[in-house]
């Protein structure tokens, strides 16, 4: 396919996928079926869509684990290469935190586990130790660094699996359902860590089924459906599209629903933007409501 001259030259664009297809061996239905999207640098991106809609397959394509049967991926405007050297440089830039830590952690020792990535990137043992120690400090896992991996709780394993990738300092960090099977404490911890990572300018892409989280956290939401992108948009716009949500069996975020109902009753200030948090909602309440609120 012929692309415009300046294709892939926009410095804001980190990753670009053009018409990807991928079919798993022995399957008749393609997992990716003409998927195209662009990921801007520094954005927080939530990928949503039913199980089997192609999110995880796309992620595995993003760092060269799967090679699309057709279509091209671009990182920083350059098409993916699949030689050993190119893959090494690709995987240092694009890191994936897998959904189930038990399918990612291979070592029995936390420190050895985290050291695997940087050593593969060719760092010396001293430099690796320094990085590993820093990451463990940052994620607050130093306390159980000397425990065997199989004695850690699910939440602790999750933090280790994030440290695995963070220590490699990727430009794009992909987290596949980071809060799956976590208790509320670790869910919040992981969300806070993701917030910290993005604050440092790392582009973060997560797969999530939590509409409320996607709504409050993401800059952009990408809806996957049958191996394609159904829609890529700002969360407020995407989640306001009731027809679209019904099609992919998603309930709109609670806060947005509340906002729209209040608005329809005239209790919201004129032209107030849709709020992303309770505090923002409070600010867009019409004056009469704010005054009455304490008595109510």
């Amino acid at each position: 396919m012929k692309r415009p001259e300046n294709y892939g030259k926009d410095p804001d664009i980190l990753l670009e996928a053009d018409n990807l297809t991928y079919t798993y061996e022995g399957e008749s239905i393609p997992a990716l079926n003409g998927l195209s999207l662009t990921i801007k640098r520094g954005k927080k991106i939530a990928c949503m869509g039913a199980n089997g809609s192609g999110k995880s397959t796309f992620f595995l394509c993003c760092n060269g684990i799967h090679r699309p049967s057709s279509g091209t991926l671009y990182l920083n405007g350059r098409p993916f290469g699949y030689t050993k050297r190119e893959l090494l440089s690709l995987r240092r830039r694009v890191g994936i935190v897998f959904q189930d830590p038990d399918r990612q952690l291979f070592s029995a020792s936390v420190r050895q586990e985290i050291s695997f990535g940087p050593l593969n990137l060719g760092f010396s043992e001293e430099e690796t130790l320094k990085r590993v120690t820093a990451v463990m400090e940052k994620l607050g896992i130093t306390a159980f660094a000397h425990k065997p991996v199989h004695a850690l709780s699910g939440g602790q394993k999750k933090l280790v699996s994030i440290a695995d990738i963070l220590v490699m300092e990727p430009e794009l960090m992909i987290l596949d359902e980071p809060a799956a099977a976590l208790d509320p404490f670790y869910t919040e911890t992981v969300y806070r860590i993701i917030e910290d990572i993005t604050a440092q300018g790392v582009t973060v892409m997560t797969a999530t089924h939590d509409v409320n989280y996607a709504y409050r956290w993401a800059d952009e939401v990408i809806l996957f459906d049958e191996g394609r992108i159904l829609r890529q948009d700002k969360p407020v716009r995407l989640f306001s599209d009731d027809r679209l949500l019904a099609k992919v069996h998603l309930a709109p975020p609670m806060l947005l629903t509340l906002f729209r109902q209040l608005k329809s009753k005239g209790l919201i200030k004129e032209n107030a933007p849709a709020p992303r948090s309770i505090r923002e909602l409070n600010r867009c309440l019409a004056p009469t409501v704010s005054q009455n609120a304490p008595e109510a």
């Binding site: 595995l60 684990i65 893959l87 995987r91 994936i96 291979f106 586990e113 050291s115 695997f116 593969n120």
Partner: peptide, 24 residues
């Protein structure tokens, strides 16, 4: 199946046939 998944996870951290880890 697990072994396949672990292999993918190792690959995505630049595994090249040697498991390099810090010595204990």
């Amino acid at each position: 199946r697990r072994s396949g998944e672990i292999f993918d996870a190792l690959e995505s951290r630049c595994y090249d046939g040697t498991l390099r880890v810090l010595p204990e």
